[in-house]
Design a protein around this nucleic acid. Structure first.
Lengths: 354, 354
DNA sequence: TTTAGCACTCGGCAAGCATGAGTGCTAACA
DNA sequence: TGTTAGCACTCATGCTTGCCGAGTGCTAAA
């Protein structure tokens, strides 16, 4: 248990270090500290805090720097409570939804850029992905004799399109019939059940209604993956180069490690989703702060990741996040993410909830 | 006019510098040079080449480095002719099209990554954009009482979707009628003519057939931008972090400049499209090499950009490109881009040409 | 418990120095 | 006239050295 004074000192060190990125010495601290304690006393307290694991020294005779545990304590216990968002921040968030056309995908993409603009860190968004949406409409639009576009619309308003080659022998009427059957039988089916329903119930019906069963099944085979493929994770980045401005990444090696990690959407997706089986992922927890080594991704040892889910109604459909140095403006960023995720949830729920 | 020997020397310098990234001295060159000329002679030739503007010295008493003009001469006159692509390269290109489902958008995205993998530079692709495609299908799928998804399919197989808010008072029947009219009258119309046709010819027909003209027009107003908006340029990047491996970008400032330039799709799109009014953009010219300062973008002063268009039939629909240092493996990259653009054109033409 | 004083530590920076690759010039050579 | 060898000179690079200053831990006094 930390004493009151230790908490005050820890908070000051974190705040100062976040601002300056330089180790804080006892002397400096004693000067700028409101309450008057001498440098020597602070030295003693600092030594204690270090022993407890909240601070560390880059090397002897440098100032102290918060340790991972120190940041954790700060986030859990020392965050300044009040202090709402600035009006600029609020304006930024509002501007995301100013248009008449609210398209999830686009909001997600722009949210990433907005996060990076407002925080000067890297914004990261996992596009909306609705696991138990249902099929709303299935459509095929022929392009020429050999190919066609298949459109899949889900109840959440997500649209997928796939270009397919038509089997050589198939007749337009059969294509039409096939899709009419599929629509008739599958609309309203949850996406994840489509594959089994097709295989179990629908093939026989197809056999009854189309002329050339062989060819129809060939076509079905080609569109089935598109239908059941969970929409691959779309990851949107914003301001990845902001990393380059940070003093902790003055080293080219580190920059490269982080940037090429960011370049792989699958990496980012995994990090954003987090371990969903994790106890910390209790239901109702929307916001997560993972500091340094708490991240499973090795590349993020020196980074903190703050994520928040956004939802339609009660159903989380995606994740927004910020990647920055462990030396992050936690208070502000947390509030920002909270506000943004709330806004997105709000708007999406209004538009898409059935 | 360069003498034969000068050309040989220039070629050797470029080749060597591309490999080593270090200024070439006369001594080094005379050793590795097949034909036996002494260092002193080479020094004289180099001095001449420098005077002519093909070489430059980073500082007195360093070796020589090709100048922009030197690279230009190399690309125009000294490219080794034969030397086909390696089998690995060919395999890479093939793998792009291995799947049954050939979706332009996806091929474009993956092409960017592939270019970067094969070249170790940065791959850059401008997604397919077909200016004089025609409308193939217009569809609206309601999501709930308040919103719907509008699908737009063009003759090239590109699909756009926009989520719209339905005007409050509109009846489902009116929506259906509106779309039936639009489809009936607009399918087959070139995209760029849609706006004018709607305004000139179709509003009157709508007035005749729907019950609530006011509301129908409100809805039409909302979808019209989506229809006529030229599909905004989609830019795909691959291997942007490859830049970090290059010795010319050991300086953080330069890295930042280039990477944040790359982060702005609009910048990249402009560079890729190039000045289409440029004399160099003669019809039939598919491949362009822009070296250093030949790029209009200031950020690319130290870079070379090699672009090639891909097409459906004779109609160019997009651009692939490589951004690398001026010290680029021109021969290989040029062949690669040529091969890739040919393949893409080939496959797309087979699938999408009407 | 707090404070002042003191010796000690260590990173960072600048100056000085040696090294070596490379040049231009001149003079001799084929 | 073109080619080569030799020589003095230049300059980036890397290493060593020494100094500075911020900061610490410890001890002794308040």
């Amino acid at each position: 248990m930390l004493t009151d004074r230790q908490m005050r000192i820890l908070r000051l060190i974190v705040d100062d270090y976040v601002r300056s990125a330089e180790p804080i010495g006892s002397r400096t601290l004693s000067k700028q500290m409101a309450l008057d304690i001498s440098a020597a006393t602070i030295r003693n307290e600092m030594a204690d805090l270090e022993e407890l694991g909240y601070l560390e020294q880059p090397h002897t005779s440098a100032g102290r720097v918060p340790s991972q545990q120190g940041y954790r304590y700060y986030v859990d216990n020392l965050l300044p409570e009040g202090a709402a968002l600035t009006t600029d921040d609020v304006k930024g968030i509002r501007s995301l939804f100013s248009e008449r056309i609210v398209e999830m995908e686009r909001v997600a993409r722009e949210a990433a850029v907005m996060i990076s603009d407002l925080t000067r860190y890297t914004g990261v968004v996992l596009g909306p992905q609705v696991y138990d949406t249902t099929l709303r409409k299935l459509e095929i639009v022929p392009l020429n004799e050999r190919s066609a576009v298949v459109l899949i619309v889900t109840s959440s308003g997500a649209v997928q399109n796939k270009t397919v080659t038509l089997p050589d022998g198939i007749s337009p009427t059969d294509v039409e019939r096939l899709f009419s059957i599929l629509n008739h039988r599958l609309v309203g089916t949850p996406m994840y059940r489509i594959r089994s329903r097709v295989l179990q119930e629908i093939t026989s019906e197809i056999a009854r209604h189309v002329e050339d069963y062989e060819e129809a099944m060939k076509l079905l085979d080609r569109i089935l993956p598109a239908l059941t493929n969970e929409h691959d994770a779309r990851v949107y980045l914003g301001g990845a180069t902001n990393m380059l401005e940070l003093p902790e990444f003055r080293d080219l090696q580190k920059v490269r490690a982080v940037l090429s990690w960011l370049e792989q959407p699958s990496h980012v997706a995994v990090a954003l989703r987090g371990d969903e089986r994790n106890p910390e992922h209790a239901p109702g927890v929307r916001l997560k702060v993972r500091i340094g080594g708490e991240n499973s991704a090795g590349m993020l040892q020196n980074c903190s990741l703050i994520t928040a889910t956004y939802a339609v109604g009660d159903l989380p459909i995606g994740v927004i996040g910020v990647i920055g140095p462990t030396r992050m403006e936690y208070a502000r960023v947390i509030r920002l993410m909270q506000a943004l995720s709330d806004s997105m949830t709000d708007v999406f729920s209004r538009f898409y909830q059935t």
